[in-house]
Design a protein around this nucleic acid. Structure first.
Lengths: 361, 361
DNA sequence: TTGTAAGCGTTATCAA
DNA sequence: TTGATAACGCTTACAA
């Protein structure tokens, strides 16, 4: 390995001169600068970032904790975040939490060992994770993405409004009996979308006669199985107001699975039953029928999260000693620190999968 | 930050003792061991991996270069690789090359700076990338995934066989005129799948009367646009053997886009036109019609790639000095080093999207 | 069984 | 305008 010493020797200068040529932190005479640059080029020198990190106490890297990269929603978010971080000179350490809080704790510990400068955290299950709070207590800047956690900074979309727009649309079309297939019960995204849905239904045409709730994972299999289970329970065989005329899935993956199951039950979407998703991933525009969904501005969410995180990292680097900000407990009356929550707007995208309910049998 | 010195002081021992308690590299008397462990626990000590890496000359991390995480195929591969690496004690630095070879070069340089122990590389465009070869020359172990690059170790599936199975199936159904929508022209995956297709068609029922080829990106938009362009060119208006009765997409994303476009043209799949994909990502089973495709064993590919890479990393750590293995040029007759290529089998999954061709008009 | 000290590749503080 | 040199937190000879 070529080190700064080799370069110094080759250029006939001291290591500090080489270092300063690279950092530009002090003026260097043009001739020596050129000589150093030439030596660097010639030897193919590349500074060792581990060593840099050791002295600067910053690895210029971020930990990204994501539940499920096979879901294209998380995939595109991860992609956009990594790109934003790279643009700002940070690398991203990928961690697949897989909806497992023991894995999460494991990763968090590893990330702290690696001296990451901050954490981008997608909560997968009910929150908050103990290990995450410890990391926060240890002074590592964290930005929570997608889900809302009250006492942590976060970036997410207006899930309530998305649900509300769906509710209004369905109510206006005449749907009064719905099946809501949620993600994990209690997750803010699930609850907010559901509450929004209720509000929208009320606005659009009076309280629904029937709103059936199911919860589970944010996966296609959950949508698929839920529909089949409901069918076995006779939900779709019911007559009149009992029978759901629309299925509202808490995300696009669930909707995808539900669509398949509905078809297997010979229920045609949207003729026999409407269906909606949430997130607006690419395939929703491509499948048959194309899916009515709520579009998240994924790239904006991702870049906003990275921006917010870097902002906090850089703020911390300036006016804080690095021993983990222990809260001053002596002064109860101090101003509570403002926890920034960036909420981005969503867009309802109406496509083929919704229609008025079928005439009652 | 709490360091090994703090622990040593708290336990009343030297730093080397603490280090050895942690590494187990030399026997420690039980009482001191316990005292050290207790101090570690009490202080919440976490070894600094930057410092460890500096002395051990290994960061225990891998660079993962992937073209497009929004594609669920890459998403699930990335997920499986990260998990395999984590299981073996390695972290993964995520790099989104976005089909851009300048970005690739950029990332490669950063990864070398960060002292990654190895590289997991998904080529996105025509190969090989110059910067990658430089990295290889610099002695960094690389495993190429998904694509085949002759003089680099790699893990990929039997693309030829996959194409062949598709070809046989379609020929046996009676298709004699096909449209092949490829990915980037010249990529091994594309070429191999196409050559396999040709072979399979020949085996299944004589040479095809007509095989129309199009190339472009591995994206849904490419499939979508290609179909529309072909339609504008009158491809689907042709009569008799000229008109393609099946569309073979080089991957599932292309097929997804193609399916949408066919539907917009009022061509029903599979009644008017059959359609196949490649990769076997989750949504292929869910969409309507469900897609006939070639299933890759993604998890096996991913873990095999990680295994192969770690094997090479660990081999290098033992019997090689770390100055970049300069090939001994003096001996022309030396045995060429064996470049391992792990080829995994694929499975044809026949679903609704294929049928015999419609009767000729 | 344990401790001392050199060194990993940088940056930063002093002097010169 | 430059150069020594002490850190940074750790591992690992070498000594004791």
């Amino acid at each position: 390995m070529i080190t700064i010493k080799d370069v110094a020797r080759a250029a006939g200068v001291s290591v500090s001169t080489v270092s300063h040529v690279l950092s530009g932190r002090r003026p260097i005479s043009e001739p020596t600068r050129l000589r150093v640059l030439e030596a660097i080029e010639r030897l193919g020198y590349r500074p060792n970032r581990l060593a840099q990190g050791l002295v600067s106490k910053s690895s210029r890297s971020l930990g990204l904790l994501v539940p499920d990269l096979a879901n294209p929603f998380f995939g595109s978010m991860a992609e956009a975040m990594e790109i934003a971080a790279h643009d700002r000179g940070y690398s991203v350490i990928l961690c697949n939490t897989n909806l497992d809080s023991r894995r999460e704790a494991d990763y968090l510990s590893m990330l702290l060992s690696r001296q990451v400068d901050g954490l981008l955290y997608f909560p997968g299950t009910r929150v908050p994770n103990r290990a995450l709070l410890e990391a926060v207590a240890a002074g590592v800047p964290v930005v929570v993405v997608d889900e809302r956690i009250d006492n942590l900074p976060g970036v997410f979309v207006d899930n309530f409004d998305g649900g509300r727009q769906l509710g209004r649309l369905l109510a206006q079309l005449g749907h009064r009996s719905l099946l809501f297939i949620g993600g994990p019960e209690g997750l803010p995204t699930v609850t907010d979308r559901l509450n929004g849905l209720r509000a929208g239904l009320a606005e659009g045409g009076g309280a629904p006669a029937n709103l059936l709730l199911r919860f589970g994972e944010y996966r296609a299999s959950h949508g698929y199985e839920t529909i089949h289970i409901c069918a076995r329970e006779g939900v779709f065989a019911a007559v009149g107001e009992e029978r759901p005329t629309a299925v509202v899935a808490a995300n696009d993956m669930i909707a995808l699975g539900a669509l398949r199951a509905l078809r297997e039950l010979q229920l045609q979407v949207p003729r026999d039953c409407s269906l909606t998703g949430f997130d607006g991933v690419e395939f929703t525009a491509m499948i048959t029928p194309s899916l009515t969904t709520v579009q998240q501005p994924s790239t904006r969410v991702a870049t906003a999260a990275v921006e917010l995180l870097l902002q906090r990292i850089e703020a911390g680097e300036n006016h804080r000693d690095r021993a983990g900000q222990q809260q001053p407990h002596d002064d109860q009356a101090e101003v509570a620190p403002v926890i920034p929550h960036v909420v981005l707007p969503v867009t309802l995208v109406v496509r083929e999968s919704v229609a008025p309910p079928p005439p009652q049998r």
